[in-house]
Amino acid sequence: MKEIRTLEDVKKLNLEPQRLFYSASHEEIKTGATADIYFVKTMEILNHMGLARKEVVAEVFPRKSGIICGVEEVLNLLKDKDVEIYGLQEGESFSPKETIMRIKGPYEEFAIFETALLGILAHSSGWATAARECREAAGDKVMICFGARHVHPAVAPVMERAALIGGASNASCILAAKLLGKQPSGTVPHAAMLIAGDTISVARTYNEIMPPDSPRIILVDTFKDEVEESLAVAEALGRALEGIRLDTPSERGGVTKELVYEVRKRLDQKGYDYVKIFVSGGLTPDRIRELSEAGADAFGVGSYISGASPIDMTMDIKMVEGKPVAKRGRIPGIIENPRLKKLK
């Protein structure tokens, strides 16, 4: 598949008649198939005028503050292009309107990749920023991203990797964790208990067959009162039990600070003070703080991270052949940022 450079290339782009998924492949992204069509039209015009190779400096800035993520993908996107790239590094914070990336080189080298570049930074930074808010709320306690089920599978690993960059301790999505050299983290869903018909039998089997590095954390809200089931599981597994997970549905009031407090006290009273409390289900930074104060030790966060809005990113041409330029409303010339490092 060759790189798209002209409108004729667009017309000739043929897709497989029985495409399994509608997400773009790596090759389609690298060859410009996800670009907005007006960039192709722009290149047609500039090539006709003999201006496509003019050296430009383009800068990227965000509309609000956040945590930058997606830098490595941008570098991979432009890896084979004759451009210099300066930018913040993955995981650094940024302010509104701060220059977070600068690209220098012939315009035709990167013109059609503006759409993909901005999309990569916008969505990944949005997810990473939401994860950082959860990390700050959780302090030094475990916070795992459980958001893969809320997004298209093609971007699930992108989202959960961004969550890790933002501060999540781990991810449940297999591919996301593997991309950062980790083993995915997760417990057992209600499905196991419902099919087995009993929490204790599942807990015992889990303890028996799972490898030593798989934490013995058991879900305790499927059939009975959470306190009753927590104590029953603790009695069944003894010292092998590392934690219980509370995921009480909203129909039953959800996981409340009162519930966490009661479970903690009841476990302590029975000598199970070593058993940690893992909570999940509709968590936000405010709820994480509240449940943490009540005694929760670890948090599984899904929709707050996965549903985070992208952070709007804008790319402006600021120099053409060494001459400062800008559209109306913007200041001509590059905006200095000593935090930028040469990345390529």
Rank of each mutant, 00 (worst) to 15 (best):
L20P: 12
G32L: 04
I174C: 04
G329M: 11
K41F: 11
R53C: 10
L340M: 05
A156M: 05
R252S: 14
E44M: 02
E59K: 04
F299G: 01
G322R: 15
A137R: 00
G167S: 00
I200R: 03
I4V: 13
V10D: 14
I209Q: 00
D213L: 12
L75V: 10
G302E: 03
A203Q: 02
T42E: 13
Y86V: 00
A171P: 02
A162L: 03
L291E: 09
R5M: 15
G197A: 08
S214I: 14
S125I: 05
N170S: 08
L88H: 02
L117C: 08
A52Y: 07
T99Q: 12
P17Y: 08
D225E: 10
T248R: 10
C69P: 02
A294V: 03
L259I: 15
K12D: 09
V83T: 05
L267W: 11
A308F: 11
R53I: 10
L88E: 01
H150Y: 14
I67M: 03
P106G: 04
R19A: 09
I277T: 09
L343M: 01
I305R: 06
V10A: 12
K12L: 15
P212M: 09
V188R: 00
T129V: 01
L7I: 10
E27Y: 00
P184T: 05
V227D: 00
E109M: 07
D80V: 10
G50Y: 02
G32H: 02
E235Q: 12
G166F: 06
S65T: 02
A176K: 07
T115W: 06
V255F: 08
E114S: 10
K342E: 02
E114F: 07
R339I: 03
V188N: 04
N47F: 03
L246Y: 04
Y274T: 08
E3V: 13
A154G: 14
K276A: 09
Y272H: 14
E258C: 07
